[in-house]
Amino acid sequence: MDPTQQKTASHFQETFLKFDIDAIPACAQQMIDSQMGIQDFLDACMPLMETIGKRYESGEYYLPELVAAGEMFKTASAIFNNQIKGDKAVLREKLGKIVLGTPKGDIHNLGKDIFGVLAEANGFEVHDLGIDVPPEKFIEAIEQTQATVLGMSSLLTTAFEHMKDVVNRLEKKGLRQNVFVIIGGGATEQSLVEKLCVDSQTRDAYEGIKLIKNFIQNKKESKPCRKHA
């Protein structure tokens, strides 16, 4: 980046961390006007997301900051995606693909949506299947996208059996060992990891992102995936 671009990027970062939400589109436009590409934009965003994550972990920030950060990122990246073409539109690879949904029998979308916003802002490609998703749809999506992460979120205990059904279907299809299955939502608790044969559980969207990043890091280092009976 040249000095003008660096200055523009710094201004964007300051605006972002002040949560001046309405000023974000103009900042994104300034970055485009100064000839920055999508990768430059992402390079400016990644430290921001790290800062926000750290402040959230330390208790300085709460859900509104996480959500606002995700939404500001979405707004700015939409402006970039709409206007940037050619070489400047080339991106480095995404961190990974996540298939996400609320299982059959539950139509709560709150937790899932928050997680989806954060996952995208953290560099993941998210395939959100929506709410009331039948088990077979999760499997189809995993097969089609080749996603290595499956996230299921629910507020109802009645969804547990459907989560288990999805895991069983993954096993039957021989996909289980390649897919990290994480569950979340107010009704879930740690003991379900073993009972439902999933890999992880969380009630905190940001913690979920961290768990997935750890999984991807371990995979890159070729650590074996958990084997399920």
Partner: peptide, 9 residues
Amino acid sequence: VINFSMDLF
């Protein structure tokens, strides 16, 4: 909750 989180700012 997403809109409301933005409204809080």
